[in-house]
Structure formats: structure tokens, C-alpha cells
Computed example of a mutant assay.
Amino acid sequence: MKIVIVGAGQAGGWVARTLRDRSFQGEVVLLGAETLPPYERPSLSKQLLSGKENKPPFIFGDTELDAARIDFHANCIVKKINRDDRYVECANGLQFSYDRLVLATGGRARVPAIPGIDLPGVYTLRTVEDSANIFSQIAIGRRMLVIGGGWIGLEVAATARAKGMEVTVVEAGDRLCARSIPSEISEFLLQKHSAAGVSIHFNTSINSIERESNTLMANIGDARLLADIIVVGVGLIPNSELAKDAGLALDNGIVVDERGQTSDAVIYAAGDITNHPNNWIGKRVRLESWANAQNQGIAVGRVLSGEEFAYDEIPWFWSDQYDTNLQVIGIPQPECVNVFRGSVHDPAFTVFQFLGDRLEAAIAINNPRDIKLAKRWMKAGKFPPVFALADTQTRLDKF
């Protein structure tokens, strides 16, 4: 059997790796739009952007791809799927037949419709090349404007500020990361960035961007924000056009079942582009996270290697900003009751979110152990009493 994987990012790379780890003996073809073999993206806004590392963590190196007998093609942008004859065609004219096809095309940075957004000095962050371009502009005393107070924007802001840049963040909403964390954690992040010297503007939109000599000017009403570099971090657009053109079922991403199978029985999908059922949430969801891309890629690889396997993970993600590691498991909800273990003024604390008597989510600051325990409880459906969670003197590992 021949399996073709379109997309050589986190999800596609793990599909390929899992197939070989599970002793799949057929052909594996991996088609990537970038020049590099599969790599992990979290370092783009952290270690790579800070200069602490000069290359991202690779899922496969060049020699490993050869050793695993994976036929990897870089710079191969797939433009067409022929479902009747079962082949894909790349922009360079190459065609690859398949018995099973996996779509792991990920997403691209969302670019808002702002006049001047395409001027030199305005960047998005999605690839190694993007990270290198931004890194080349980082220097002590230079000015960076970040559009978007979400995870990417805040990580870029923290990295740039730590390197001595003057940083301003513009957020259209009224708090940071409003869609994914409770207001108390938004306020904690605000205080963390403000203490570091980052200026943050809420309820503010950029009307236009102009450039004069080497200075960028972002117009906000009657005022202007001046910058040497602008980084746009306002979300991701799933690369689902290929699936749409092929007639696959779509609904905020490619619709798949718990095995990663699409509406075409021989086509599968994994990662940021999938709308998949999630038992913990109790509904379909499309997740944009490192963990989902990896774990769903592994799940699809196991299915295609012949296992009876269903993808059923509790959502989890993390962010590193300054000296703070933030981790979230589950999906925080505004209607939940928050149980604090420790205080936002402590070096480490955790917020457990309950809806009725069910633990819906946990948000931990510099407390990864609490996240591991919360995951165990959530999977088991058994939770410590609230008084124990709130009492920092009570050992949680006994529950």
C-alpha cells in the first residue's frame, strides 16, 4: 500500500514517523511546502526568535528520513487531488498516486485587511523563515509593534522585550487571550508584561499603516504609533482549500471521525485543519495546538498501520513568556467556578475550573505537576474535593 501525506509539518511528520514506528512496510511519500523536513513550531516565537537556538527541533532529520524509507519532497505545493484516479498533483507538475491520502496542510497566519499591511517591515510568524526575518530586526532600543494580544503576539512581545526592544501591543478586545483563559489569568499576563515594560492598548484597532523612511506608522484614530518593525499575530486560517476543491466535507475545517477519516474513505486528515469529535468537550472542535497536531498525527498513523484506534485526547497547550510557563488542560469556560490553589501573586499557582461537580479545565502557572494530576483526574472522572484543591498544604498526588 502507498500512503501519500500532504503537509510536512507537525501533524504530517508524526503520521509518517508513526507509520514506520508501527512497522508499516508500504510506501510513504511526504510532500512539504517548505524547504525543511518536518519541524516543531513552538520555538519560532521563543528559542529561535531569541537567538538561543539556530534551528528548530526536527521530527526527522535528513538522514532519518532516508533511514525510515520516507520519500520526502520539499517545496512541493499540492494544487489538486484527483479522487477518481487517486493521485495528487503539485504546482511543479509532479504527480503522486496513492492508496491512502493524508491531508496535514496546517494553516497560515491570518492577515487583517489593513491598508499598508504588506509594507516592508511588517511580518507574520508561521515558518522558520518568518522567525529569521523578525530576528534580524531585533536589537536593543528598536521599537516593535505587535498587533494582537493572543499567544503568538505575547510570546513575540516577551522575547523582543527580553532582548531590549521597546514593545507595544495593540489588542482589539478588552483583555489578553480572551478566548482561551479566564479574566484572572488575562490580568496576570497583563501585569507580567506591564512590569517588563511592555505598553498594551486594549479596544484598539489599526486603521492603516504607513512607512516614512525607516519608520512605520500605525494609525489608531487621531493618534499614531511609531515602530521599526510590526509583527501581526491575529490568528490562523486553516489551509482547507485543497480539500474544498476536492469536494470533501468541510465545517470550520475538514470534517473527520475519531479515526481521522474524512468523507472519502481513503482520505484522512490530521492537525490544525481537522474538525474532529472530542469526547471530553462533548462536541466537534478544531484545535490549533502543538499537542493536537502531534497526537492526532500519531493517531492517524496508528490507524493507517492497521490498528483499531480512536483519537480521544483532552485539549492541552502551553506558553512560555519571560520566566513564566503557563499550561492549560481542558477548555476554560467563563461560566465555570474558579478554585485557586495559591495566589496570582505567588511564583506558582493553579486555577481549577468546575462546572457543577465536573472539573472542566485547569490553568497552571509554573506548576506543570498540577496539570499532569488534573489530566489523570479528568480521564478518570474522579476529582479531589474543592477544599483539598484550594489547600496548598494538602498533597494532591494522594488522590
Results as ranks from 00 to 15, higher is better:
residue 1 M to K: 14
residue 1 M to S: 14
residue 3 I to D: 01
residue 5 I to V: 13
residue 8 A to G: 15
residue 11 A to S: 14
residue 12 G to C: 08
residue 14 W to V: 01
residue 17 R to L: 05
residue 19 L to I: 04
residue 19 L to W: 07
residue 19 L to Y: 07
residue 23 S to C: 05
residue 28 V to P: 11
residue 28 V to E: 03
residue 29 V to T: 11
residue 29 V to E: 00
residue 30 L to E: 07
residue 31 L to R: 12
residue 34 E to G: 06
residue 39 Y to K: 00
residue 45 S to D: 04
residue 46 K to C: 02
residue 47 Q to D: 14
residue 55 K to A: 11
residue 56 P to A: 10
residue 57 P to R: 03
residue 60 F to I: 01
residue 61 G to A: 00
residue 65 L to P: 08
residue 70 I to N: 02
residue 76 C to D: 00
residue 77 I to H: 14
residue 77 I to F: 13
residue 78 V to A: 07
residue 78 V to D: 02
residue 82 N to R: 11
residue 84 D to E: 13
residue 85 D to Y: 11
residue 92 N to G: 04
residue 93 G to V: 08
residue 94 L to H: 14
residue 95 Q to T: 15
residue 102 V to K: 05
residue 109 A to R: 08
residue 110 R to Y: 14
residue 113 A to T: 12
residue 116 G to L: 01
residue 116 G to E: 01
residue 119 L to F: 09
residue 119 L to M: 10
residue 121 G to D: 00
residue 123 Y to H: 15
residue 127 T to S: 14
residue 129 E to L: 12
residue 133 N to A: 15
residue 139 A to D: 13
residue 139 A to Y: 06
residue 146 V to L: 11
residue 147 I to R: 02
residue 152 I to T: 09
residue 152 I to Q: 02
residue 158 A to C: 07
residue 160 A to L: 06
residue 163 K to V: 04
residue 165 M to S: 10
residue 168 T to K: 13
residue 169 V to Q: 09
residue 169 V to T: 02
residue 170 V to H: 03
residue 170 V to L: 13
residue 171 E to T: 07
residue 175 R to Q: 13
residue 176 L to S: 00
residue 178 A to I: 02
residue 181 I to T: 04
residue 186 S to H: 10
residue 189 L to N: 09
residue 191 Q to G: 14
residue 195 A to S: 15
residue 196 A to F: 02
residue 197 G to R: 04
residue 198 V to L: 06
residue 198 V to H: 08
residue 200 I to V: 10
residue 206 I to D: 03
residue 210 E to L: 12
residue 212 E to Q: 12
residue 213 S to Q: 13
residue 214 N to E: 12
residue 214 N to R: 15
residue 214 N to S: 15
residue 217 M to W: 01
residue 227 A to P: 00
residue 229 I to Y: 03
residue 233 G to T: 08
residue 235 G to W: 06
residue 236 L to Q: 11
residue 237 I to L: 13
residue 238 P to V: 03
residue 238 P to T: 08
residue 239 N to P: 00
residue 239 N to K: 01
residue 239 N to Q: 11
residue 240 S to V: 15
residue 243 A to C: 12
residue 243 A to G: 10
residue 248 L to S: 07
residue 250 L to C: 12
residue 254 I to G: 10
residue 256 V to F: 08
residue 260 G to S: 12
residue 263 S to T: 05
residue 263 S to F: 02
residue 263 S to Y: 06
residue 263 S to W: 04
residue 263 S to V: 03
residue 263 S to A: 04
residue 267 I to H: 07
residue 274 T to K: 09
residue 275 N to W: 03
residue 283 K to T: 11
residue 284 R to G: 13
residue 295 N to Y: 11
residue 299 A to G: 10
residue 301 G to T: 08
residue 304 L to R: 04
residue 306 G to T: 06
residue 311 Y to R: 05
residue 322 Y to T: 04
residue 325 N to A: 07
residue 329 I to C: 07
residue 329 I to D: 00
residue 332 P to V: 06
residue 332 P to Q: 10
residue 336 C to V: 06
residue 337 V to L: 08
residue 343 S to D: 14
residue 345 H to P: 00
residue 349 F to R: 01
residue 355 L to A: 11
residue 371 I to H: 02
residue 375 K to D: 07
residue 377 W to R: 09
residue 380 A to Q: 15
residue 385 P to D: 14
residue 387 F to T: 13
residue 389 L to P: 05
residue 392 T to K: 14
